[in-house]
Nucleic acid binder design. Structure first.
Length: 429
RNA sequence: GGUGGGAUGGCUGAGUGGACGAAAGCGGCGGUCUUGAAAACCGUUGUGGCGCAAGCCACCGUGGGUUCGAAUCCUACUCCCACCGCCA
């Protein structure tokens, strides 16, 4: 979330940001509540100061074996008044916090103001777009023919847009996971994490999935009496990994921290029906290797560029052409201040597919999850900056592999870096 | 799933209604001493909120409650530990 103080002092900037993101939040109500809450608080606190003083006097009277009945009777009234005012203040603060959770992050200065995907900026491209002298098969056709994916049975077991990998398809999936984890841990200095695949409500709130995107999450355990105990299937490893340090104060010399994690990711994709759902492009459960960084505020943008390079290196090693685009204001995700997308080239359909979102959240998630650090022993705690990037999402990489490395006879070449992970096979089919 | 025990500052740990934001020890930081270090000694050392400020307020796992006053009493919950049951 954004600092309440910042909103108080820069209300119009926040209003403009909401407009540029095409988002709504009850900013006026927030400002009004904030004023009322602070007035109440100041008043209540002075009453409490008085209460504390008199309470001590009562203690002294009692010690001196003197009668305090009259004073106690007076205090009873004050106590009641304080209780009422506190209840009002708490109600106001609860509403303030609820609104705060719905306000997205302030975009970083270089973010272009835009109204659609078309306003994203292409930052770079890598690799030659390949040309073919035969007609390419779309990935879903090839995957079925090679027996790598069983779309029918995936749907039978779980429903539409769930898939089942089979044989070398399953093995390819596993090979890609291994390859990516090995790359990040041995070449880029990341520590591997294998987190829970379920997360509770505070954890989901910490990274910003809740409350805004709750409808997109699978909730698999509901506890009416303790909503905090509700469990959700994670939509990305970002959620459990970033929240590892929720409520903690790290020491400055631990930073930066680099973590990488493989997890399946679960997304209801509510409202996305019929949109690019053919084959592996948009499925409810997919595998992903994620990278998460915790950094000091002053280094986060340098770290962001390095993170992008780490993610890119996956596609480079696989020999898959891609481009990098920077999100404009309406495309920027709720919690991000700056975001690059890496989009891999899918030659059969002649289009780029997003396989990684590389974001700097600055202190937005850290403030929600209360993740802080001390520069030196004894220094004041400050919020860390959090960043993450997919490194990368698998199904769309599989799409690109199928479409890029297919032969005219319907067989598939295996990129060199994957061969050792797949029993030395150079070709599938 | 059952029974029992627990949760206090960076850590260990005292505190069962009134000067307790909290003893003591360890650790950290600063200093004295020392050629330097160690030891010893002295000092210091939580977080957040409101306020222009002085300052005030809050926080002893979390939420409610009792009371003039709660770390302390009541209550619900969460997590941790141990044992039993079940189980890959």
């Amino acid at each position: 979330m954004i600092d309440l103080k910042f909103i108080r002092e820069n209300t119009e900037d926040v209003r403009q940001m909401l407009a540029e993101r095409h988002t709504e939040a009850d900013l006026d109500r927030l400002v009004e509540l904030d004023t009322r809450w602070r007035e109440n608080l100041t008043h209540t606190q002075s009453l409490k100061a008085h209460q504390n003083q008199v309470s001590q006097q009562i203690a002294q009277l009692k010690k001196a074996k003197q009668d305090a009945t009259e004073t106690i009777a007076e205090m009873r009234e004050l106590s009641q008044k304080i209780k009422e005012l506190t209840a009002e203040a708490n109600a106001a603060k609860a509403e303030i916090d609820a609104i705060l959770l719905t306000i997205p992050n302030m975009p970083e200065a270089s973010t272009p103001v835009g109204t659609s995907e078309a306003d994203n900026i292409e930052i770079k491209t890598w690799g030659e777009l390949p040309s073919f002298d035969f007609e390419l098969k779309p990935h879903w056709e090839l995957a079925e023919q090679l027996g790598l994916v069983d779309f029918q049975r995936g749907a039978k077991v779980a429903g539409s847009n769930f898939v089942l990998f089979k044989g070398l398809g399953a093995r390819l999936e596993r090979a890609l996971i291994q390859f990516m984890l090995d790359l990040h841990t041995t070449q880029h200095g990341y520590t591997e994490i294998s987190p829970p695949f379920l997360a509770n409500r505070p954890t989901m709130t910490g990274t910003g999935q809740i409350p805004k995107l709750e409808a997109d999450m699978y909730r698999c355990d509901r506890d009416e009496e303790n909503p905090d105990s509700d469990l959700f299937l994670i939509p990305t490893a970002e959620v459990p990994v970033t929240n590892m340090f929720a409520g903690e104060i790290l020491s400055g010399d631990e930073l930066p921290i680099y973590y990488t994690a493989y997890t399946p990711c679960f997304r209801r994709e509510a409202g996305a029906y019929g949109k690019d759902t053919r084959g592996l492009q948009r499925i409810h459960q997919f595998d992903k290797v994620e990278m998460v960084k915790f950094t000091t505020p002053e280094t986060s943008y340098v770290e962001h560029e390095a993170l992008l390079a780490n993610a890119e290196s996956v596609l480079q090693a696989l020999g898959l052409p891609y481009r990098v685009v920077q999100h404009c204001t309406v495309e920027l995700s709720f919690a991000a201040a700056k975001c690059y997308d890496i989009e891999v080239w899918a030659p059969a359909r002649q289009r780029f597919l997003e396989v990684s979102s590389c974001s700097n959240f600055e202190a937005f998630q850290a403030r929600r999850a209360n993740i802080r650090f001390r520069r030196t022993a004894g220094a004041k705690p400050e919020f860390v900056h959090t960043l993450n990037a997919s490194g990368t999402a698998l199904p769309r990489v599989v799409i690109a592999l199928l479409e890029t490395y297919q032969n005219p006879d319907g067989t598939l070449r295996v990129p060199a870096v994957l061969q050792s992970y797949i029993g030395g096979l150079t070709q599938i089919g």
